[in-house]
Design a binder for these strands. Structure first.
Lengths: 211, 211
DNA sequence: AGGTGTGAACACTTTCACAGCA
DNA sequence: TGCTGTGAAAGTGTTCACACCT
């Protein structure tokens, strides 16, 4: 796959997959691009374009087989395997993620939990013992970690990121409100609750006088 | 403000503000578009363009006054006031948000917590008593709620959204993995951890064979 | 010189419209 | 007929380049 796929296209693929799985459970056998579009609030053309980036999955005049398309999207997104995740930061957010059933269902397994607080190190989190954050490189090697979730305070984020890079990690989900400077081949995704609320604040402040 | 402002521009404004506040704390008096750009990983032209959407805040040859620009961005984002937030869903994610200091600092106050579980209703969350989700419309009126945070399971999200719309809520932060169909003048922002991890999964699956 | 503000060029995304297969 | 797959058109967002102010 050589051409660049936009972020929004990938996000929509995730959506399509969710809809397809739901439809499958409801016993639906085929869907059209229009069906999918309506469910996630986009256009039929957009759906077809997104899918066409990766191949031809439908039948003209008929639509898409729910199970086959779901299978194809799973393959595209790399969800036809399981991923090994290390959680750094055993605080509130970390705990919420750790307990999130949805992650395991979708193929993401927590294989390690780390924290910098000596008070927390050594404690049991379900079947895992909390390790010290400084041990991240060893932990990554020991458990063949694919993805690191950063749920630490902002001031600690850059340091952990350095450890993660040192350990050869190529994908990071960052909950700390900082922009992490990383090398070319590391993918970082930021989740920032404050920023989302600020966007709502903007919408509320400027939407009043619309239309 | 009549023209449309892109989502990414607003997200960047939030970033600029964070950098400015940090710089201010460090005693810096002025910054250039290049300084800001470097810090958040974009271009100087982008920074100037973003700001120019809302006015002229800089001095040619000099740059921007840290305090004045911060003040201006706060006004743009509507952060020159406090917002009243109701949290629906007193689970793990809800708790993590409720305890998130960053939200209060940025002007977002939790004025109510609601849950559908009778077991949880009536309990104290710091200074608040958990109310039943069905009471959302009254709660919104009583506390003049501006923003609803939806931290409920997917199956419950649509129902709560209906109550929120009925109550006249115009801004929702949604953590449930569902696309909420809402009327034109309601702004919904979705935060979806699974989707973020799927994007990482995609990057890992397709990045291997790069350069 | 140094750095902003901005029209114009460019790149990317979405929508349109239709040929072509079931 | 119904619906996909896709070039071409339209629309958005980003980068360039430079006039202009301090």
């Amino acid at each position: 796959l050589s051409r660049k796929i936009s972020d929004s296209a990938i996000r929509r693929l995730s959506f399509y997959l969710r809809i397809l799985e739901q439809s499958g459970d409801e016993g639906v056998r085929t869907v059209s691009s229009r069906d999918l579009a309506k469910r996630i609030g986009t256009t039929a053309a957009q759906v077809r374009k997104d899918l066409s980036l990766f191949g031809s999955f439908g039948k003209r005049g008929l639509g898409y087989s729910v199970t086959k398309l779901a299978e194809s999207i799973r393959a595209i997104l790399g969800l036809d395997r399981r991923w090994r995740v290390a959680l750094v930061g055993a605080g509130r957010i970390g705990a919420a993620l750790f307990d999130h059933e949805g992650l395991r269902i979708r193929g993401f397994d927590f294989v390690a939990v780390l924290d910098a607080d000596p008070e927390k190190v050594g404690r049991r989190w379900r079947n895992l013992k909390v390790r010290d954050t400084s041990e991240l490189p060893e932990v990554v090697r020991e458990h063949a970690v694919d993805i690191v979730i950063l749920a630490v305070p902002a001031y600690a984020a850059a340091g952990v990121m350095d450890l993660a890079e040192e350990a050869g990690i190529r994908a990071v989900l960052n909950f700390a409100p900082t922009t992490l400077r990383v090398s070319e081949d590391v993918t970082v995704r930021d989740v920032n609750m404050v920023m989302e609320l600020e966007a709502l604040s903007f919408a509320l402040s400027h939407g009043e006088d619309r239309e």
